[in-house]
Design a protein around this nucleic acid. Structure first.
Lengths: 142, 142
DNA sequence: AATATTATCGCAAAGTTTTGCAATAACAGA
DNA sequence: TCTGTTATTGCAAAACTTTGCGATAATATT
């Protein structure tokens, strides 16, 4: 389990600076049960910091995704949603029709991931996995 | 192989109207070798239709993705890129660090897809598959 | 503890994508 | 072919995300 403290420490070790803004954002994301938009994070932090800028939230989230501490997905309505990686240690099945997300077990996929590593040298991050398709509900109503 | 004509016909059968704008956009996407942004499609169609609006391009692309005729992915810089489904009958491996996309073979994944269908009733669309991770180049330079 | 370096911040502007609404045009039925 | 219905369009505005830049503050060094 990657606690927010660990994330911040790792960032520092990688040469990034740990600022109050980054601390707040990482903490908010880590303590949230659900995926959050940049705007939501910004709003939740208003009470703690009047001056925290939305652009800073976006930049921090980009950094976290780039460094592998967070996941970004396109929610219904085309807005970006973010979550820490430990919140997504499963496969996301997203329905193209209704937009709902279903969690699924990763079991059975590992051999293929290993094969990709061997064949292409590409290290897939299983925490990021999302499959698009059509869910049982929407399959029926077609 | 899904030709643009087929796509338009299917759309009509589904009750959507086939307009000149939609024809142009579907055709442009189908004839492109690479992924295109909405803006690029709009520009390519300028000579053919001065009045075609960018919003119409976005709406049409959304429709195509929703109905399963096109794929949308987040390119480098956070911009959306689109392609017809037949152009993506392979796995996209996208590097989180450098943003490059690598094509990979789907072989070996089918059993898992079938298992998802059996277990969850979820019909994964293999044309949409994208895995995020770190590419060989960027793995080295860490 | 003080200082130098430079990554990060806030702000404002630019770029990208979505949405509301009145006008238009695609399609079904006469 | 003509007509009515209503999905789709273009436009303009709103919403969302990224970017440039000078000011600030986190870290390394003295």
């Amino acid at each position: 389990m990657t606690h927010c403290h660990t994330t911040l420490q790792s960032l520092r070790q990688q040469g990034f600076r740990v600022t109050p803004q980054r601390e707040m954002i990482v903490e908010t994301l880590a303590h949230s049960e659900t995926h959050l938009s940049a705007e939501e994070i910004h709003q939740r932090l208003q009470p703690r910091s009047k001056t925290l800028n939305l652009a800073t939230v976006y930049r921090t989230l980009d950094l976290l995704v780039e460094q592998g501490y967070a996941t970004r997905l396109v929610g219904k309505g085309g807005k970006f949603l973010y979550a820490t990686r430990q919140h997504s240690r499963h496969l996301h099945l997203i329905c193209r029709k209704c937009g709902r997300t279903y969690p699924a077990d990763l079991k059975g996929l590992e051999p293929f991931i290993a094969h990709l590593k061997q064949t292409y040298g590409f290290q897939v991050e299983v925490e990021h996995l999302t499959f698009y398709g059509v869910c049982p509900n929407c399959l029926q109503s077609t």
